[in-house]
Every structure is written in structure tokens, then in C-alpha cells.
Amino acid sequence: MACGPVSSLREVRAEILELGCDTPGCTAQRLGPPPAGALLSVRDVSVRYGTKVALEAVDLDVYQDRVTALIGPSGCGKTSLLSCLNRMTDLVPGCTVSGSIRFDGRDVATEQDTGWLRRSVGMVFQRPNPFPLSIRDNIWLPLKEHGCKHSELAARTEEVLTQVGLWNEVKERLDQPALSLSGGQQQRLCIARALTLRPRLLLMDEPCSALDPLSTEVIERLILDLRGTVSIVIVTHNLAQARRVADDVVVFWNHDDSGCVIEAGEAEAVFANPRQPDTVAYLSGLRG
């Protein structure tokens, strides 16, 4: 199997037959060795909006202190899966989630304490969405809500803003409206805001898709810096980005109008040696 990602489809199909794999479908076995103990494991999860099935029978694992990228063509349920992970799906009327999602030994789907869940699992959205308040208040609001002592507010603010590399840029103007920042700065502020709660897992939904290339580069560097402090799940449709930042990759695909996972594993292994023809085609830009 010395073929790169650009090997022809026929060759790959032959290999699959040789290996005795099933026909292409919604199965995904991990490529590469699994690290010990998954922080988050998703089993047989389906997401429905009313009667429309957005995501069908998804299995995946997220490991401690690693960056996991969810990739795949648009409309294949990556964002839907992401929002199950911290139960943002509760906010969507008519949305039902089935299957099991275990995070830190607890079942996300039936978790009574959504507060604990949302504090442990932070989220950053596609469009930067700082509150229409001052920079400082954007950080203070969640801190105060979750009982941070007044004497610690300043220190924690500096801590998270430093973490995202924003401190030196804004320390002189913490009282200015957050909306006066540039798009990239706003997104970093949102990341800082999510970090205030010291989450164990950070969900990022295409965090760079609304940004210019330079800001994107800054955010990507930030993601690499954060690795080790917090585990990250990032949705992206930018393959190059996934290559640059991800330790693990999960490939989503559309089957009969609903999304599923077709390939998962260590990033290098998946990019170098995909097993599914759809993955090959997607990675080589033939489809998707």
C-alpha cells in the first residue's frame, strides 16, 4: 500500500477488495494506533431535524489534548454533530438526537446538568459573535456568572487574553466596544471568552471561514498553541487547514442525503493512506 492520496480510484478499489473491506458505506475504522482513553466517544449518533435525517449512525472518538478535525463536503452534518456535543441542539426546535455520547464518563444526551456540560465543553462559532459590550465585559460576563471572585477578574482576563495573543493588542482599550475590533481579533476574543471557563474540550465550528488569510493564520497558530492545554474539535472544509492543525481527522460524507462518517484516524495516516474511495476522491479534490 505505498500509494499516496492521489492514487487512482481503480487501484484503491483493488486494494479495498484485497483487504476484504465491505463496499463503501458508513463504516469507519480508526487508521493508526489509538491513543489511550478517549475523552469523548460518540456511538451510533443520529440527528434529525423534524423528519429530515441530518446525520446517521455516527461513531467517533476524541482524545485528550489532541486536535480533531471534522472534514467533508458541506451539508454532511459536521456542524450538526458538533452542536450535539454540548447540547446546543436543545436550542433548535424539532431537533432530536439519538445514540450515545460519553464525555468524561458521563452521558451527554441525558445529562441533567447542562451547565456543567457547557462549562466543560466550550464553543466557538463560525461568525465571530462577541456581545455588544466592551471587550472587558465580554470576558467578565461569563466569569461573574460562574462565580469568579471580583479580585480575580483582572488576572483571569489577562490570562485568557494572553492565551489567545490578544492581550498586548487590547490591554490599553479594554473598555472599548468589542465590535470595534477587527474580525480576526473578534474571533480571538470569542476564543478567549470560551476559555474563561477553563473547558476541557473546545468546539470550533469553521472558526476561520469568515476571516481573511492573515487572521486565519493567526487563529491556526493559536490552535496549535492551545493543544496540550485543551482538547479541540474543529470543523473545517479547508483540507489544507486540517492538515496544518489536526492530530486526528474524521471524514464525513453524504449518503442518501444524510451525513455519516466514512473514515477516521490519525491525520497523517488518513491523508497518506485513505481506505475509502470517497475519501480518496475527496482528498484529491475529485469530489466533494
Binding site: G122, F131, A194
Partner: peptide, 9 residues
């Protein structure tokens, strides 16, 4: 804003 607030609990 509402979504962001919910995500921050």
C-alpha cells in the same frame, strides 16, 4: 448573541 450566551452557560 443568544447562542453564544447559551454556549457559555
Amino acid at each position: 448573541y443568544r447562542v453564544a450566551a447559551a454556549a457559555l452557560d
